[in-house]
Amino acid sequence: LELTLRVGDKTWHFKDVDEEFVRHLEELLKRGAHEREIEEIIREWLR
Rank of each mutant, 00 (worst) to 15 (best):
A33V: 14
R43H: 12
E39W: 07
L28N: 04
F21Y: 02
E20L: 14
R43A: 10
W12N: 00
F14I: 06
R47W: 10
L5T: 01
D16T: 14
V7H: 02
H24K: 13
E44G: 07
D18N: 09
H13N: 05
T4C: 13
G32L: 04
H24Q: 12
F14H: 00
I41W: 14
D18Y: 04
R47A: 11
E20W: 15
R31N: 13
R31P: 02
R36L: 13
I42Y: 07
L46N: 05
E40A: 12
G8S: 02
L3S: 02
G32T: 04
V7M: 05
R23W: 08
E44Y: 08
K10E: 05
L1M: 12
E39C: 06
K15F: 07
L29I: 15
F14Y: 01
E26R: 15
E27C: 07
E26P: 01
E44T: 07
T11A: 04
L25I: 11
F21I: 04
D9S: 07
R6T: 15
I42N: 01
D18R: 04
G8D: 02
F14E: 00
L1G: 15
A33N: 06
E40S: 12
R36G: 13
K10W: 07
I41A: 12
K15S: 07
E2T: 10
K10Q: 08
D18W: 02
V17E: 14
E35K: 06
D18A: 09
E2P: 03
E19P: 11
L5R: 00
D18H: 10
L46M: 12
I42L: 05
L29P: 01
V7G: 01
R23G: 06
E39T: 11
H24V: 11
V17R: 07
L29Y: 07
E37D: 11
A33S: 08
V22C: 02
E19G: 11
R6M: 13
L5F: 13
W12E: 00
V17P: 06
H34N: 14
E19N: 07
R31Y: 11
L3R: 05
R31H: 10
R47K: 10
R36F: 10
K10H: 12
L1K: 13
G32Y: 06
R31G: 12
D18V: 02
L3K: 04
R43V: 11
F21H: 02
F21W: 07
R23K: 12
I38Q: 02
E19L: 14
R31E: 09
L3N: 02
I38R: 01
H13A: 04
R23Q: 07
E44L: 11
E40V: 09
R43Q: 13
W45C: 03
E39I: 06
V7K: 01
K30R: 14
E44Q: 10
E40Y: 10
H24A: 09
E27I: 10
W45S: 03
E26A: 13
E27G: 11
R6A: 09
E40F: 10
L1H: 13
E40K: 12
L29R: 03
G8C: 03
E40H: 11
K15H: 12
L1R: 12
H34R: 10
A33Y: 12
W12D: 00
F21D: 04
E27S: 13
H24T: 13
T11F: 07
V7S: 02
G8P: 00
G32R: 03
K10V: 14
V22L: 03
D16N: 15
E2S: 14
I41V: 14
L25F: 01
E44M: 10
E39L: 08
L25S: 01
L1T: 11
F14T: 00
E37L: 07
L46G: 04
L29S: 05
V22F: 06
E27Y: 15
H13I: 10
R43M: 14
R47E: 06
R6Q: 15
E44K: 11
E2G: 12
T11N: 03
R47Y: 09
E20S: 14
E37I: 09
F14S: 00
L46T: 05
D16E: 10
I38W: 03
